[in-house]
């Protein structure tokens, strides 16, 4: 291989003039984390609501929520981001469209919301699956005690369902982090984008991508460990959720 390795490159100043190449990657990591965090908050809240609504016994609510899930699940995340970023401002009234386009950090907001909604469909699937995994008797027992439907969900069904789906939710969280890299296509300077930029400026392709790979692995490990801790905290003596 006639590739010229230069691991010292990270400590050299980047042509952006704001710091070293390593600082560049860290800035990217920050945007990756910020985007993932906001996207996950959206995915988790919207997904939980949609998932719960899909288990109710109301025909049109279930149908509307199913349509929501199918819509967001069957269009690639990249195309969805393009729709939010390029198409939405055009089809809105001119003034709103202009406001959207000139908004500061537009790529961050669009990326987070777009990825959040994309992931919310998958969270909704998990929440629904978790609720349906519970025996129907649990719903009956809550109802028989006089709890309202909302109370039955709040105090009985959801606490158990979320415990059951903690492991798949952890992978959806990791997927959110991974998907945040797609936002580079709408100009978000997250970790992968900064890695690309570093490679273009410095020509040290493999050093840059190795560093990015390590940073992603670290984020993965931290999220996994944190969720394992959450699982341990949420564990109920004598109750196994089947994994």
């Amino acid at each position: 291989m006639n590739y010229h390795w230069n691991w010292g490159i990270f400590w050299e100043m980047s042509p952006e003039g704001t710091g070293t190449y390593f600082d560049m990657l860290l800035a990217g990591l920050w945007w990756t984390l910020a985007t993932s965090a906001l996207a996950w908050i959206i995915a988790f809240s919207v997904g939980s609501v949609v998932g719960v609504l899909r288990t109710l016994r109301s025909g049109w609510v279930v149908m509307a929520c199913n349509a929501y899930v199918e819509l967001f699940r069957n269009i690639p995340i990249l195309v969805q981001l393009f729709l939010w970023y390029f198409v939405l401002p055009e089809v809105l009234p001119a003034e709103m469209g202009r406001w959207l386009k000139t908004m500061p950090n537009a790529a961050f907001w669009t990326g987070s919301i777009g990825i959040g909604l994309f992931m919310s469909a998958r969270v909704a699937e998990q929440v629904k699956a978790g609720l349906q995994a519970l025996p129907r008797g649990q719903w009956m027992a809550g109802t028989a005690l006089g709890l309202t439907t909302a109370q039955t969900y709040r105090y009985i069904l959801l606490p158990t369902a979320f415990r059951i789906i903690l492991p798949p939710l952890t992978s959806e969280m990791l997927n959110t982090v991974k998907n945040s890299s797609v936002a580079l296509t709408i100009g978000l300077m997250e970790l992968t984008a900064q890695t690309r930029a570093m490679q273009e400026f410095s020509f040290q392709v493999f050093e840059a991508f190795t560093a990015a790979t390590i940073l992603y692995l670290i984020v993965n490990a931290v999220v996994t460990l944190a969720m394992r801790w959450v699982e341990k905290m949420a564990a109920v003596p004598g109750y196994t959720t089947g994994h």
Binding site: P135, G137, M140, T160, Y239
Partner: peptide
């Protein structure tokens, strides 16, 4: 009401 499968709330 008392159920066949108890239906205590496991959490």
């Amino acid at each position: 009401m008392v159920f066949q499968h108890f239906e205590l709330f496991p959490h």
